[in-house]
Amino acid sequence: MAGAFWCVVEDDRQGQPKKVTAEVIGEARRRAAELGGAVEAVWLTDRAAPEGLDQLAAWGASRIWLWEDAALAPYRGETWVPAIASLAERESPRAIWGAVTSRHRELMARLAARLGAGLAADCVAFGLADGQLVATRPVYAGKLLSQVRWKTGPSLATLRPNVFKAGEAEAGRAPAVERQALGTIAPATRFVARREEAQTGLPELTEAEIVVSGGRGLKGPENFALLEELAGVLGAAVGASRAAVDAGWKPHRFQVGQTGRTISPKLYIGCGISGAIQHLAGMRTSKVICAVNKDPDAPIFKIADFGLVGDLFEVVPLLTEEFRKLKR
């Protein structure tokens, strides 16, 4: 629908939309309430489960534009961009929003170039100025916030996970599904294989509500076991500082920081991390920050809501024990 807010669905590759999509839809609903316009989902997938469609409707998508085709998995710009672009040219949405995930980041960049539109990546807030939509995004390692506005439509953006409030789900809303045909696209790129990461049983770093992170203070890779135990009790993801990653204690995908993942969990617990600027860039938008460090002058204490000055080898097992008591 012309003037609609389109929310591109991020899914779990099993036919279910991910939580971050509820957040994108939630924010789109708040902005649509001010600016007008419908909130619609745009889903490209090889498999959309009926419960997944119900879920999108419950979160507040009044319509679901659905492409369900084996050629859409895994994501490739060549197949996704033309599909969304041609519908956008026909439907003239006001905004097209995605999540800050590896594939949405590339998709939205290409889509913006295709449509000749502006992209605001990694947004943490939206607002109105003179009746126009403006977005706020962290820049320069999170040291500054940049407020941007679009000079032409549609307004493309990616939204940082865990920052925006999901809309209240209302069950029983019937999804209005508009099935779209992909058309014949012969992608030049050939998918070879997917290599799964070793399963940790813990949530994905960028989506986790709680993150337990370790740095040089852990003294060696084997001591991440202490954090994994704590994370297991909390249902948290495990992260690492650049120092720990550069030392080879953890693969790079665990790195939190400017040259790693940017995370925004409800609770962040940093253990044996000094808090270099490069690390703070990746976690400073966390809601509650706790730090355990034996050095009372460690910079991380300057941004921590709660600082524990002590030896992590003593403190972390005690924390694990205390959290475990809560679960009982």
Binding site: L144, L145, Q147, D305, L318, E322
Partner: peptide, 28 residues
């Protein structure tokens, strides 16, 4: 197509609370 309206410094986080003392008490 995209225009920077303004940059601003990050609002400082409110000062935190530092816990000291016996590890067991701090953890609890």
């Amino acid at each position: 197509v995209l225009e920077v309206v303004a940059l601003e410094a990050l609002p400082p986080r409110p000062p935190g609370r530092i816990l000291t003392g016996e590890p067991k008490d701090m953890a609890r």
